[in-house]
Design a protein around this nucleic acid. Structure first.
Length: 202
DNA sequence: ACCATGATCCGCT
DNA sequence: GCGGATCATGGTT
C-alpha cells in the first residue's frame, strides 16, 4: 500500500479529519510492522483557542506550522505523548489529533510497549479489556506505537511512519462531538469517530 | 498555574 | 462492574 500523497494533507482540515477515519496508521520498526486503523480523531485549526497553534509559533509547537503530512508530537501532563497529523500549507498551524486506533498488526509489540515484557502480565493482557486498553486513547496509542519526542517532525511521505488507504467507513457510521479535555472551543464539534467501534475512547 | 491524559482508589449498585 | 474524585509528573507560559 502506498502512503497518502502530499496533496491529501493540503486540503481543509475538517475534511481530512473525517476522511482519516478508517485509514491505516503504519509504523515499521526494523522488520517489525505495527498497523492500526484510525477510529477517532480531533481537528485543531488556526484561530481556534483550543489549538496549540493559537498563540503563534513557539519552540514546542513549531512542527504544527510545517507543510501538511508531518507528525506533530507533544508531551503533556508530565508523562504522556500525543500525536497529530499536520494539515494545510506551510505556516498555517492546523492538525488532526489521533485519539484512538483499532490494532490490526503487531499486537504483541504493542502489548510490550504498553505493559512491558513481563510474561505473566502479557498472558493476563490477552483478555478483551486489555486488548481494547492498548490503543483507546491518544497517549495510549502513542505508547503502543512507540511514538515520543524522536518522532516529532517526521514526514509521513518519507519515514518509517506512514498512513495509507484503509477501510471505507459508511458516512452513517461517522459521528461527531465536542473535543475532549479542553476548556475553550467546546462549542465546536470537531471530534470525529466511528460509531460503535470498541476502541473509541470514553 | 495550567495542561488535547491515564491509572487507581473508593463508594456505590 | 460502574462513575466520580484524586493523583502522578514535568514542560510550557
Amino acid at each position: 500500500m502506498k502512503p497518502l500523497s502530499r496533496s491529501y494533507y493540503l486540503r481543509p482540515t475538517l475534511q481530512i479529519a473525517q476522511e482519516l477515519l478508517g485509514k491505516y496508521f503504519i509504523r515499521r520498526i526494523g522488520k517489525n510492522l505495527l498497523i492500526g486503523k484510525i477510529v477517532e480523531v480531533e481537528a485543531y485549526r488556526s484561530n481556534d483557542p483550543a489549538s496549540h497553534s493559537f498563540r503563534g509559533k513557539t519552540n514546542r509547537n513549531s512542527v504544527m506550522f510545517c507543510e501538511g503530512g508531518h507528525l506533530y508530537v507533544y508531551f503533556t501532563y508530565g508523562m504522556h505523548f500525543c500525536v497529530n497529523i499536520v494539515t494545510g500549507k506551510e505556516g498555517i498551524g492546523e492538525a488532526v489529533l489521533i485519539r484512538a486506533v483499532e490494532p490490526l498488526v503487531g499486537i504483541e509489540m504493542m502489548k510490550t510497549n504498553r505493559y512491558g515484557s513481563n510474561k505473566s502480565l502479557n498472558l493476563h493482557s490477552l483478555n478483551r479489556k486489555s486488548l481494547i486498553n492498548l490503543t483507546n486513547g491518544p497517549a495510549k496509542f502513542c505508547q503502543a506505537f512507540g511514538i515520543a519526542r524522536q518522532e516529532n517532525g517526521l514526514d509521513l511521505l518519507e519515514s518509517e511512519i506512514s498512513i495509507t488507504d484503509g477501510d471505507h467507513i459508511p458516512p452513517k457510521l461517522i459521528k461527531r462531538s465536542s473535543r475532549i479535555g479542553i476548556q475553550q472551543g467546546v462549542e465546536k464539534k470537531w471530534r470525529f469517530f466511528i460509531k460503535g467501534n470498541p476502541w473509541v475512547s470514553k
